[in-house]
């Protein structure tokens, strides 16, 4: 049971971190105006160093998050 609790807390922490990290990214979705045609995206802006590092950290936290989710699922199944 403690393992489940630890994983749950880890999951909450990584989830909050993930949300924060994704929000830190510069939005490039372009909103609705570019959804479904129309709207030209300017491809001028190359990804900066900050963005690259942010990508890397997000990926890292994301994998921990997935491990937590899968681990919790397995634990619940075993018990």
């Amino acid at each position: 049971m403690t393992a489940v609790l630890i994983l749950q807390i880890a999951l909450i922490v990584t989830s909050l971190l993930l949300i924060l990290l994704v929000l830190l990214h510069r939005g490039r979705g372009g909103g609705l105006s570019s959804l479904f045609g129309g709207g030209m995206q300017s491809s001028l802006s190359g990804s900066s160093v900050v963005e690259k590092n942010l990508d890397r950290i997000t990926l890292f936290v994301g994998s921990i998050w997935i491990i937590c989710v899968v681990g919790l699922g397995l634990l619940v199944k075993v018990s």
Partner: peptide, 12 residues
């Protein structure tokens, strides 16, 4: 919280 994080990931 997990679902919200999932949505954030999809957005990313």
């Amino acid at each position: 919280v997990t679902m919200t994080a999932g949505t954030a990931i999809i957005m990313w």
